[in-house]
Design a protein around this nucleic acid. Structure first.
Length: 437
RNA sequence: GGAGAGGUGGCAGAGUGGUCUAAUGCAUCGGUCUUGAAAACCGACAGGCUCGUAAGGGCCUCGUGAGUUCGAAUCUCACCCUCUCCGCCA
């Protein structure tokens, strides 16, 4: 969430000469939200502070009287007169306290539903069309035949079974059989090894269920409650990404400045209700209610978070490079960037069967947006400086299901068999080609 | 799921209605002493909010929330979490 008090600051950002409030107004407008929220927030905060001042003044008086009563009692004097004076103060004080709570609550309710301020380098745009191409990498293979889509390949090879998953569970679920199951497992292993051994991340397997406080902490709740599966009768929800449990790993904690950045590479299945995406990507593995993902999460020093963002994006790209899959990196524009992100790079992999680039990773810097909600701070070990909020970042490194699609489509042969990328062979008992039985 | 015990600062641990502004110890940091170090001694040592140009005030926080009271770490209720034992279980 945004810092209300920063909205009152008069100092300008040297990068663009705007105050925080002006930047935030602009962010809201470019995201398609009402920029007047800024003025509403400022007004609410003024009112809130007035009530607090009133409440605290009364409270201080109560405390003084209380001490006086205690003193008289000890001295054996009569405190009856004072007690009488305090009768009314207690009820008035409680009433004011309620007003403070209410003002606080109203302010937080608004703050919790407002998106992050975007970084000054984020392209202004109306839709995904306006995303900025940062770079493209790899060479698209030229096929001497019409490239098939992954579901056709998978069904013919007998390794993807959508129909039976429909019977057993429902739409948007899949059975992976034989070589597909093996490939999925190899991809997880390959990515985790790469990030842990070469990119300096600590491996993690988090809980796949998290409570609502954790969802609030990353900015998923209250606004996007409908997007997750809720376990009836509990406060538990299936995670839509490992970002939820992993970012909250340090919730409420103060880290040491010297240990930043902290990096985790977490494997988890992800569960998404996909409410509101009816009719979109209904075939194949692209949009499933359940998929596997390796997620990269970083807790960074504010002065280094954009450097970290580039590194993290690079780490995700490395996976595609090693699998020799063509891809491009785009910087999401103001309308396409997610609620909590200040800046986001999407990695889009080339799918010859679909003849399109499709998102396979999303690498975001949230700055202190999540850290404020989840209360994750750091403090210098030496100086007596106050704790500050960390910057949190995360990115898919990568989505396993979509990587499997990319492998099937990019490595297909005319007869429908699929070459196993050389980087993955060692993880698949040396298997070189996936063929129909 | 059943029974019991417990949750106090970075850690350990006192505190059972009003000098709690939370004792004491350890750890950490600064200083004195020392050739240097250790020991000893002196000092510092939570966070949030709020008023104030500042200096400096004030308010809140003893797992969380509600209640009793003029006043709650302390009493009452609910919830959460941890530990021990029993049951079940991969």
């Amino acid at each position: 969430m945004i810092d209300v008090r920063a909205l009152e600051q008069t100092g300008a950002n040297p990068q663009n000469g705007l105050t925080f409030a002006e930047e935030y107004r602009r962010s809201l407008k470019n995201r398609g939200e009402d920029p007047h929220w800024v003025d509403k927030l400022l007004a609410m905060n003024v009112k809130r502070k007035q009530i607090i001042t009133q409440q605290e003044t009364l409270r201080a008086q109560q405390n003084r009287f209380g001490e006086e009563i205690a003193r008289k009692r000890r001295a054996g004097e009569d405190a009856g007169e004072l007690l009488k004076q305090m009768q009314g103060m207690a009820t008035q004080s409680k009433e004011l306290e309620q007003q403070v709570l209410k003002a606080d609550q109203e302010l937080t309710d608004v703050l919790m539903r407002l998106p992050n301020r975007v970084h000054h380098t984020v392209p202004v745009g109306e839709s995904a069309e306006d995303n900025l191409l940062v770079r493209a990498s790899g060479v698209k293979k030229v096929f001497s035949f019409k490239a098939k889509e992954h579901w056709e390949l998978g069904e013919k090879l007998g390794i993807l079974d959508f129909e039976r998953a429909g019977k057993v569970t429902g739409a948007r679920f899949t059975f992976l059989r034989g070589a597909a199951a093996q490939l999925e497992r190899a991809l997880i292993q390959f990515m985790m090894n790469l990030h842990a051994e070469q990119h300096g991340y600590e491996e993690m397997i988090p809980p796949f269920i998290a409570n609502s406080a954790s969802f609030v902490g990353v900015g998923q709740f209250p606004k996007f409650k409908d997007d997750v599966f809720h376990l009836t009768g509990t406060d538990y929800h299936l995670i839509p990404t490992a970002e939820v449990p992993v970012t909250n790993f340090f919730a409420g904690e103060t880290l040491k400045e010297s240990e930043l950045p902290v990096r985790f590479a977490a494997y988890s299945p992800c569960f998404r209700s996909e409410a509101g995406s009816y009719g979109k990507d209904t075939r194949g593995l692209i949009r499933q209610h359940q998929f596997n993902k390796v997620e990269l999460v970083m807790f960074a020093h504010p002065s280094q978070s954009y450097e970290c963002h580039e590194q993290l994006t690079g780490h995700a790209e490395k996976v595609l490079q090693q699998l020799d899959l063509p891809y491009r990196v785009v910087s999401l524009c103001t309308r396409d960037i997610s609620f909590g992100a200040a800046k986001c790079h999407d990695l889009e992999v080339w799918l010859p069967g679909q003849n399109a680039y499709r998102e396979i990773s999303s690498c975001s810097n949230f700055e202190d947006f999540q850290a404020r909600r989840a209360n994750i701070r750091f403090k210098s070990d030496a100086s007596k400086a106050k704790p500050q909020f960390v910057h949190t970042l995360n990115g898919s490194g990568l989505a396993i299901g979509r990587t499997l699609i990319a492998v099937l489509e990019n490595y297909q042969h005319e007869d429908g068999s699929v070459q196993v990328p050389s980087a993955l062979s060692p993880y698949m008992n040396g298997l070189k080609v996936i063929k129909a039985k």
